[in-house]
């Protein structure tokens, strides 16, 4: 057993999840690859969305994977960083909008 929770090499083994549940695993990977095909959004745009979400869900595997994917597609570092900021802005906005709830509660409880 590894003595840390995350090992970069584990990403190579992602496909192995299918071994313990063939049907669900395969369905997931089919769905996954379909999602990232060219569609109404370009594969390039989806790669940047994935990168932003990878940061928001703080998945180190996805960050590695979509940084590399971006490089392969010729996406520049400025574009990548703006995508990360888009994710971060939504995430901090989601925190801050709860400030309204705090204000409501405060007002309700105060005389």
């Amino acid at each position: 057993m590894a003595d840390s929770y995350y090992d970069p090499k584990d990403l190579r083994k992602f496909g192995n999840i299918t071994e313990w549940s063939e049907e669900l695993g395969s369905k997931f990977f089919d769905y996954y690859s379909k999602v990232f095909e060219e569609g109404a959004l370009s594969a390039r745009e989806k790669s940047l969305i994935a990168l932003a979400v990878a940061h928001v869900v703080k998945c180190p595997y996805c960050i590695d994977a979509y940084t590399k994917d971006g490089l392969q597609r010729g996406i520049t570092k400025e574009e990548m960083m703006e995508a990360v900021h888009a994710g971060a802005a939504i995430e901090s906005g989601a925190t801050l909008v709860h400030g309204v709830q705090m204000m409501n509660k405060y007002n309700k409880l105060s005389m």
Binding site: A43, K68, L71, Q72, R73, G74
Partner: peptide, 18 residues
């Protein structure tokens, strides 16, 4: 050629971007 340790992306998409 990629400038680093990664593979080239789709040739047609790259051609369009270039």
């Amino acid at each position: 050629n990629p400038s680093g340790a990664y593979l080239p992306g789709d040739q047609i998409a790259l051609e369009q971007d270039f």
